[in-house]
Simulated scan of single mutants.
Amino acid sequence: MDMKLELVMVPVTDVDRAKEFYEKVGFVVDHDQVVSDDVRFVQLTPPGSACSIAIGKGLTQLEPGSLDNLQAVVADADAVRAELVERGIEVSEVDELAWGRFVFFADPDGNGWSLQELPDWSASAGGEGYQP
C-alpha cells in the first residue's frame, strides 16, 4: 500500500502576511481560494517538493506558531542559507550534525522549519546503507 503525504496545514494568524513570507522563501502559490466568509485556502509548494503546505482561515484548530519542526531536504545547506539571507529571511548558521547539515528558520507566527542536507551515507558505509 502506498501513502503519499501531500499537504500539511500550517496554522497562521495573518494569511496575507504568511503568504508573502512563504513566497519570499521561494514557495510557489498553487491556490488561493476564498471558499466562504469563514474559509480561505492557500496552498503553497516548496520548490521541487511533492508535498505542499496550506495556510488560511478555517483550516485547522492548531494554534498559530504551534508547528515546531517542519523539515525539508536540500542539496546544499550553505547555498540555501545564502539564498534565504539574500531574500531577507532570518535564518540560522549551518548546524553540522552527524545525521546532516541543518539550517533553521521560522515563519512570522513562529512555525519552525529545518532544512537538512543529508550526509553522504555511501561514504560512511563503504558504499552500503541508506540512500535517499
Rank of each mutant, 00 (worst) to 15 (best):
His31Asp: 04
Val74Asp: 02
Asp68Ser: 13
Tyr130Glu: 05
Val39His: 09
Ala125Gly: 15
Pro119Cys: 12
Val39Leu: 11
Arg87Val: 01
Trp121Leu: 07
Val34Asn: 10
Val34Thr: 15
Glu93Phe: 00
Asp120His: 03
Lys24Arg: 15
Val42Tyr: 04
Asp2Tyr: 00
Ala98Pro: 14
Thr60Lys: 07
Val85Met: 11
Leu70Cys: 10
Leu44Pro: 00
Val34Arg: 13
Ser92Asn: 10
Asp120Trp: 03
Glu117Val: 03
Glu93Gly: 14
Pro46Asn: 04
Leu62Asp: 10
Ile55Phe: 00
Glu128Ala: 10
Gly26Glu: 11
Gly65Gln: 12
Glu117Asp: 07
Leu84Lys: 09
His31Ile: 15
Leu84His: 08
Ala54Glu: 05
Gln71Phe: 08
Lys24Glu: 11
Asp107Ile: 06
Pro11Thr: 01
Val42Glu: 13
Asp32Ala: 14
Val85Arg: 14
Phe21Cys: 06
Pro64Asn: 08
Val15Met: 02
Leu84Ala: 04
Leu118Phe: 09
Ser122Asn: 04
Glu128Cys: 01
Glu23Val: 08
Gln116Leu: 13
Tyr130Lys: 13
Ser52Leu: 03
Gly129Glu: 01
Arg81Asp: 05
Gly127Asp: 02
Ala125His: 12
Gly26Asp: 11
Glu63Pro: 03
Gly126Asp: 01
Gly65Val: 02
Val103Thr: 07
Val25Pro: 03
Pro119Asp: 05
Pro132Asp: 04
Gly127Tyr: 12
Leu59Cys: 06
Asp68Trp: 04
Asn111Phe: 13
Thr13Gln: 06
Arg17Leu: 13
Glu93Ile: 00
Asp78Ser: 09
Val103Glu: 06
Gly58Ile: 06
Asp37Ile: 02
Asp14Gln: 07
Ala82Met: 11
Val29Leu: 08
Leu84Tyr: 04
Gly56Trp: 00
Ala106Thr: 09
Asp107Gly: 04
Arg87Lys: 15
Tyr130Pro: 03
Glu90Ser: 09
Asp68Gln: 14
Glu86Asp: 13
Asn111Ala: 08
Met9Asp: 06
Lys19Arg: 13
Pro46Arg: 04
Val39Ala: 12
Val85Gln: 14
Asp2Ile: 10
Arg40Asp: 08
Ala18Tyr: 03
Asp32Asn: 15
Ser36Asp: 09
